[in-house]
Simulated assay, not measured.
Amino acid sequence: MDITAQRRYLLINPNTNALTTQRLQDVLLPLLPQGVQLDVRTARFGAKYIACEASHAVAAHACLDAWVSQQSAVSGSLNGVLIGCFGDPGLFALREVSGCPVTGLAEASFIQAASYGPFAIVTGGERWKPMLHRLAGSLGYGAQLRHIETVAPNGAALQADPDMAIRCLTQACQQAAQSGVAAIILGGAGLAGYARLLQPHVPLPLIDSALAGLEIMLKQASPPAPHTQDGFFAQWQGMPEAFKAIPTRDTG
C-alpha cells in the first residue's frame, strides 16, 4: 500500500476489555504503511465482551462516545474509522455523522470473503448467529453468507486460552468448510492473528477479520472532501458536553 501523505485513522474497540484493544494493536500496528497514524480508543462504558443484543446496543452508543471523545481531543480530520468488533456496533450511526469513511470488522470481512464466492463465518458465542445474519442482510451480503459456525466459548474465553482456541476453532473451521462455501471468515477482535495459525489445517481461504478491517479501511479512505464534515442531525440532552461540541447539520 503506497500511502505517502500523513494520514490519521481511528480504531475503536467498542467493548471495555483492554486486552482486546491490546490484541488489535499488537496485530495491526506493525502492518501500518509509512505515513499512517492509527489512534486507538477503548469504550469507556458497556460490556467487557459483546455477546448479546443488549451489549451490542450499548456498544453502539459507546462507539459514538469514543468517536466524539477523539474528535474533542485531537484537532484535524480523520481519513477513516474502523470499528474493532465483529458485529460492527454503531456502524450506520458513525457513517452518518462522520465526514470520513467508516467500516467494521464484519463488513470488511464480508467484502473480502464475497470476492471468493459464498462464505461462512466461524466465531465464538451462540447468540451472535442471528445478529450476524441480520447484519449481513443489512449490508447486502445475506445471499453470500451460507453458514455460521459458532463455538461454545465466547470471544473472551477464546482469547484467554490460546491453546484451547486453536483446537476449538480448527474443528469449527473444518466443519464450516463442508458447507459448500468458497471462503471462511474467522470473526472476532480477540481472534486477530489466529487465521494464519489455523490456515494450514483448513482447506479453504481463511479471512482474519482484524486484518480485513485494516485493509478495507485503508483502501476505502481518502482525504476528507471539502464539502463533507462531521455533524449530528439531533440536539442532545443529558449527554456529555463533548457531544454538544460536534456541530449539528442543517437539515433544512
Score class of each variant (00 low, 15 high):
Met164His: 05
Met164Arg: 06
Met164Ile: 00
Arg167His: 13
Thr170Glu: 12
Thr170Gly: 13
Gln171Asn: 10
Ala172Met: 02
Ala172Cys: 04
Cys173Phe: 07
Cys173Asn: 07
Gln174Trp: 02
Gln174Asp: 04
Gln174Ala: 04
Gln175Gly: 02
Gln175Ile: 14
Gln175Tyr: 11
Ala176Thr: 05
Ala176Asn: 12
Ala176Ile: 12
Ala177Asn: 08
Gln178Arg: 15
Ser179Cys: 12
Gly180Ile: 02
Gly180Ala: 04
Val181Ser: 01
Ala182Tyr: 00
Ala182Val: 07
Ala183Cys: 04
Ile184Cys: 11
Ile184Asn: 06
Ile184Arg: 05
Gly187Thr: 03
Gly187Ile: 05
Gly188Trp: 06
Gly188Thr: 02
Gly190Asp: 01
Gly190His: 10
Gly190Cys: 09
Gly190Leu: 05
Leu191Ser: 09
Leu191Cys: 11
Leu191Val: 09
Gly193Pro: 01
Gly193Thr: 04
Gly193Asp: 08
Tyr194Gln: 08
Ala195Met: 10
Ala195His: 03
Ala195Trp: 01
Arg196Gly: 01
Leu198Tyr: 08
Gln199Ser: 08
Gln199Met: 06
Gln199Lys: 07
Pro200Glu: 12
His201Phe: 10
Val202Lys: 02
Pro205Ser: 10
Pro205Met: 07
Leu206Thr: 09
Ile207Phe: 09
Asp208Asn: 07
Asp208Ala: 10
Asp208Val: 08
Ser209Met: 11
Ser209His: 07
Ser209Asp: 04
Ser209Val: 00
Ala210Asn: 14
Leu211Cys: 10
Leu211Met: 06
Ala212Gln: 03
Ala212Lys: 03
Gly213Thr: 08
Glu215Tyr: 01
Ile216Lys: 09
Met217Pro: 00
Lys219Asn: 09
Lys219Thr: 09
Ala221Lys: 04
Ser222Ala: 14
Pro224Tyr: 08
Pro224Ser: 12
Ala225Gln: 13
Pro226Gln: 05
His227Cys: 04
His227Pro: 00
Thr228Asp: 13
Thr228Ala: 12
Asp230Ser: 13
Asp230Pro: 00
Gly231Cys: 03
Gly231Asn: 03
Gly231Asp: 02
Phe232Ser: 09
Phe232Asp: 06
Phe233Asn: 14
Phe233Trp: 13
Phe233Gln: 13
